[in-house]
Design a protein around this nucleic acid. Structure first.
Length: 291
DNA sequence: CTCCAGGTTG
DNA sequence: CAACCTGGAG
């Protein structure tokens, strides 16, 4: 791992000297990340499948959560919903039940809706190009690219936190506010089009390693500071969904009482959840939405 | 207890 | 650009 960090510093120095990435620097960069990858490969369940639906599930989970928290949920999810048809035909209630612990409930709903669109409009086949993938709910630029890469082996340009870390460490270590627009051209010339899956898997593992030693997130233009937890509605919303998922339809006064929030907070959270169609009201009782 | 990781949506 | 969620780290 010191070998990775030191090797990439040599890449950085050559790049500063030559001010561009020539064939020699590209070769050096790739050999650094592949050497590391060959001896530090992480055996992750979604790396040993070619099932595009399973890849889609893993990528949606990974866009919001760190690897070690996704592994068990991913295995549980594909066990419970082994095919895209199984997911499409399940209730949102059941999907959210498996999702609890991952966070961001609306993304579970987007994934569920995406599965229904794929079944009804794509004959159950996950689209294999970025434009179509990006039309699906919950898939933006990054996840569309990652599905192209990991499900179909296409050399898409994929920029997420680990990729940013590797490129900032290798090429922008003394910069502030590095934007994705600055990273993209370097990614374009360094990408290993002969094996995009291996290339990006290696970047993921290298990024994770580098982060254990340096935190470059503040160098990225994407870095933001979160609002304080207590002044937001996040926790209340999550608690409500978790309660309804385990106990079924519930009256709002019961929610306030059981969860220990003021009726006002419960009311506000319920309004937001209903507005997003995650929860709905059925004469005084709140349940998980049906669609 | 506070801080922090993560990409998409509206 | 703010909101979304959870749980591990400090």
């Amino acid at each position: 791992m010191d070998k990775l960090l030191d090797g990439l510093i040599l890449v950085r120095e050559s790049y500063i000297k030559k001010k561009k990435i020539d064939a020699a620097i590209k070769r050096k960069f790739l050999s650094c990340i592949y050497d590391f990858y060959d001896s530090n490969y992480r055996h992750l369940p979604w790396r040993s499948t070619n099932n595009p639906y399973h890849i889609l599930v893993s990528e949606v989970m990974l866009q919001q959560t760190q690897v070690n928290r996704v592994i068990d949920k991913y295995l549980l999810f594909i066990k419970k919903f082994p095919t895209i048809e199984a997911l499409a035909h399940s209730s949102l209630h059941d999907v959210l039940g498996v999702w609890q612990g991952l966070g961001y409930n609306r993304r579970a709903k987007y994934l569920w809706q995406a599965s229904q669109i794929i079944v009804s409009q794509y004959n159950g086949n996950v689209p294999d190009n970025e434009a179509e993938l990006q039309k699906l709910p919950g898939l933006g630029k990054a996840t569309a690219a990652s599905v192209c890469i990991f499900a179909f082996g296409r050399p898409a340009l994929y920029i997420e936190t680990n990729v940013r870390t590797v490129y900032i460490y290798s090429f922008f270590a003394n910069h502030q506010n590095v934007s994705d627009a600055m990273i993209r051209p370097l990614l374009e010339v360094t990408i290993d089009t002969t094996n995009p899956k291996k290339f990006y898997n290696a970047l993921m593992d290298c990024g994770t390693c580098i982060k254990q030693h340096y935190n470059f997130s503040r160098h990225s233009a994407h870095y933001t500071v979160q609002k304080p937890y207590k002044t937001s509605l996040r926790k209340v919303r999550g608690d409500i969904v978790r309660y309804i998922v385990s106990y079924g339809a519930t009256h709002k006064e019961i929610l306030a009482q059981r969860l220990g929030y003021s009726p006002d907070k419960i009311q506000k959270a319920l309004e937001a959840l209903c507005r997003e169609n995650l929860v709905c009201e059925d004469n005084g009782m709140y349940t998980i939405a049906k669609r």
